[in-house]
């Protein structure tokens, strides 16, 4: 009887975490994607490009300026668990694909928002980089939950 109790106790933590992933994690993700779609639609007027020149006719009265944004998005326990299982047979890790996508899109939205708030209507020469915050885990230690840490920067300018 006592053995069952301890087995239950040991299993309860992962089970609770999986349930959290299924509920809170799923909900956060769905809300985030919905918000990204809304924001992207609202920012459709801001032209984003990765070219080094300035597409369109530039309004020289407004000086161009650098805009940048960071985002750190964490995966939840369930996603990490699914990814670990996926690693056994290999293939696409969809859960992490979504985490990366959220981080990139969020950072892009933020620079466009920043540009728009400053009165610009275009951002060119956009670059994306990743930052490495979690390489802190020592070898042999338990792997921490994955997180995507990206930053995006570009030059905001006014297109006529």
């Amino acid at each position: 009887m006592g053995d069952f109790f301890f087995l239950f106790l040991n299993l309860s933590v992962p089970i609770v975490l999986i349930l959290l992933g299924l509920t809170v994690g799923k909900l956060t993700e769905r809300r985030h994607f919905a918000r990204l779609r809304r924001d992207e639609a609202a920012l459709a007027g801001v032209l984003a490009s990765t070219v080094r020149s300035y597409p369109g006719d530039v309004d020289a009265r407004a000086e161009p300026t650098l805009v940048a944004a960071n985002v750190v998005i964490s995966a939840d326990y369930l996603m990490s668990l699914l990814a670990t299982l996926r690693k056994i047979i290999g293939g696409r890790v969809r859960t992490y694909e979504r985490v990366m996508e959220r981080a990139r899109r969020e950072a892009s939205v933020r620079i466009l928002k920043e540009a728009q708030a400053m009165g610009y209507n275009a951002v060119c020469n956009i670059r994306m980089e990743k930052t490495d915050l979690m390489s802190s885990r020592k070898k042999g230690k338990k792997q921490a939950t994955a997180m995507a840490s990206v930053y995006v920067y570009g030059t905001a300018y006014n297109r006529v």
Partner: peptide, 13 residues
């Protein structure tokens, strides 16, 4: 803690 449920880590951002 946030790592358990996922989402943005505002402190790190």
């Amino acid at each position: 803690l946030k790592n358990l449920v996922g989402g943005e880590l505002k402190g790190y951002t």
